[in-house]
């Protein structure tokens, strides 16, 4: 479920005043961890088999590397998902992501052309969906992954309604 936290500082682009950030579901972290861990461990397994067959130390090193990557990915995904946030304001929607490389996107409701809700099989297993906002610009990269389906549907309807109310044309 999405929890809410209020940011305090201002003057920073990534902590606008008075914005209440909604967080995404921890199910997103589980889903991403599953995919990442399976991929890394499969690579590690392949490298281990190669190490066993060839007896080369390089393959052994590769095995260790992939295991380390899997563990690191586990930790990193947790941080990344915790850093995802969005906020519905009166006239626009804010989407925030990233810790090392941070990004914030502001999409005015009046510029929304349409809103997509996507959920793949893994997403559905973890009870999450992705809401993607589309404006007339292809460079508007505003997607909110990891929303509970009910929240995703609510957000989609709300955004569509607000988009219509604010509609500006091109």
């Amino acid at each position: 479920m999405s929890s809410q936290s209020i940011s305090a500082a201002s003057g920073e682009p990534f902590e606008p005043l008075g914005v209440i950030w909604s967080r995404v579901s921890p199910g997103l972290a589980s889903a991403r961890r599953l995919v990442n861990t399976i991929a890394e461990l499969a690579m590690a397994g392949a490298a281990a088999v190669a190490a066993f067959l060839t007896g080369s130390l390089w393959w052994l090193a590769a095995t260790v590397l992939f295991v380390v990557l899997a563990v690191w990915g586990w930790w990193l995904i947790g941080r990344q998902v915790a850093a995802l946030g969005y906020a519905e304001r009166e006239d626009d929607l804010l989407v925030y992501r990233g810790i090392m490389f941070r990004e914030i996107v502001v999409v005015p409701y009046g510029r929304l052309q349409y809103v997509d809700v996507k959920a793949g099989p893994i997403d559905r297993a973890f009870g999450i969906a992705q809401v993607q906002l589309h404006t007339a610009s292809a460079s508007t990269d505003a997607s909110i992954p990891g929303l509970p389906p009910s929240e995703a549907a609510r957000l989609r309807d709300r955004l569509s309604a607000r988009g219509e109310a604010h509609l500006m044309g091109l």
């Binding site: 682009p13 990534f14 090392m100 490389f101 990004e103 502001v106 999409v107 510029r111 610009s137």
Partner: peptide, 9 residues
């Protein structure tokens, strides 16, 4: 259409 700000380390 929309705006964004990015920041690297």
């Amino acid at each position: 259409q929309s705006c964004g700000v990015t920041q690297g380390p």
